[in-house]
Structures are given as C-alpha cells and as structure tokens.
Amino acid sequence: MKYFQTNESILFGLLVLLCIFLSFYNPQFYSIQNIHSILRSSSTVMIVAFGMTILLTSGEVDLSVGALMSFVTVIVMDVINITGSISLGLIAVFGFCLFIGLINGLVRTVLNVNSLIATLAMMLILQGSVYVYSMAAIYNTHLIPLFSFIGQGFFLNIPMPVVIMLFILPFFVVLLNYTRYGRYFSSIGSNPDAAKLSGINNNRYKVIGFVITSLLVGVSGVILASLMDTGQQGSAKGFELIVIAAVLLGGTSFMGGKGTIIGTILGILILKIIDNGIILMRIPQEFQLIVPGFILILAVYFDGVRKKNSG
C-alpha cells in the first residue's frame, strides 16, 4: 500500500491517460516494437536514476553522470578493442567509475563543496579529458557478438537493456524501502544534524551514494556503447538533466528526505512516452524538450501544494 502513495497514483493515472490518448491517435503505440523501443531507451535512464534517487534523497545531486557516461562508452570500446576481452573492458569501466564516484563524494564531504558545484566541475573535467584520452570516436573493431548483445540483443523477447534494468531494480527498491540504509539516506537528506546525532555517519553514506551512482552510470554507459556500436565523445548530452527531471517528477524531493524508486520509474516512463508520442504524432521534435519542461514545473508545484496541505 505504501508504495502506491498518492503521488505514485497520480503519476500512474497520468501514464495510463497518456497511453490511452496515444493509442487512439496511433494504434502502432501498442506494437511490440514500440514498447521495446520505449523500454529500451528508458532503461539506461532508469539505471542511472536509481542512483540519482538515492543521492537526491540524501540531499545531494550529481550533474556529472552524462559526461561520465560518454567517457564510459569511449573507455569500454577502446579497452575491448585493445584486449579483446569484455571482462577487462568492464573492469576498466567500473574501476574508472568507482574512482570518479569517490572523487565526487570526497570533494563533497571532505572539501565540503556543494555537490551542485562539485559535480558541475566534474562534468567539465570529464567533458574535456575525454578528448585528452582520445580525439577521435572509438569504433567497434573487436566485433565480439556478446558485446553487441548487451545493448541490441533480446532475452525471452525482452530487450537486454530492459533485462539488465529489471535485474538491478529490486535491489534498489529493497535498499530504499526495506533496509536501514534507505532510512539513513532519507534522514541525512531531511535533517543532517538529527541524522548525525543519531549516530549516522552522514559523510560515509554520501560517498556511498556518489559511488553507487557512478557505478550505475558505468552499466548504462556500456549499454549505450553497445547500442551505438561506438565509443563517442559528446554522447549522452543533457542526460543528467533528463535523469534529474525524471527523479523529481517521480516525487523525490530536491531538498532531500523523500525518495521513491517506483515514482522515479513512473517519471521516466512518462517522459519517454511523451518523447515517443511526439515522434509517433510527427510533432516537431523541439517539443521533446518543451513538454517535459512544463510537466516538471507542474509536478514540483503540485508536490509543494500537497505538502502544504498535509503539513
């Protein structure tokens, strides 16, 4: 019951309405292909958004996820090209992501730099240094079928990115709702002093939040590289904003203290279905930015109204 609180019900209702509307407009909406397409492009966002939900719940934010993701596509493609081994490629990616997550977390907690600024700086550093790593895009020369399978394959007729997302999802639902760590993240975000005076090591959990988010970016980055069949500098542009917008739309508070994975998933589905609908309805694609912008403002506004009524 708790996991379909008012906010989620509203989002779910909105989602249903959207689906009904679009299917009236274009019956292709319910084609298996279209559902695959929506879910596949949602899943890379969702995977990162699980981490971002935790971060926002604990009152932090990570703007470097898009830049990191683009860097990951380059690293994974390059390392597999050189070594011919997917495992080594993954080790390189997750090692790098762990390192970046740690830096983000330590700059936030040890140097006490606001995470909005710390991760903005990290975004710039990554955007620049990916070109130091390689000026040119890295193309798939290893041609290992398993690698293409990660982003493009199907398992039981479900796109692999979706399978990977579904594999990660329960872990985060449980983490945030049923373990003490979930409570720690929300207490740190809601009232850091109270959390600290309850014996919680705020800084440790903040660092963990940043590391988890970066590792998830690693997962999504590998999927993206497989999907593009390329390691591409400058890809995943604006990805961080889509992730944050979806998490906020899902009902997680930007001020921390309140986070919901289910809400995040609904938020992403809504944004992605709007994206999809704009293409299905052949509306100019600029509306892919305009419509979610308005929806986000409304969502956060209604959230504030509801909070005022209940408080």
Partner: peptide
Amino acid sequence: ELDGSGMIDSSVEVASAALAADS
C-alpha cells in the same frame, strides 16, 4: 523525417521510436 541532433546516441533513440511506428 527525424532530428537526430547529428549525434549517434540521439539518432538511435529517435530512429527506434520512428521504426516502431513504421518499420
């Protein structure tokens, strides 16, 4: 007629949606 922003990742995304509508 799609807008892929000239980027491979955006192109994958919009083309996926378009192909779903009509392949």
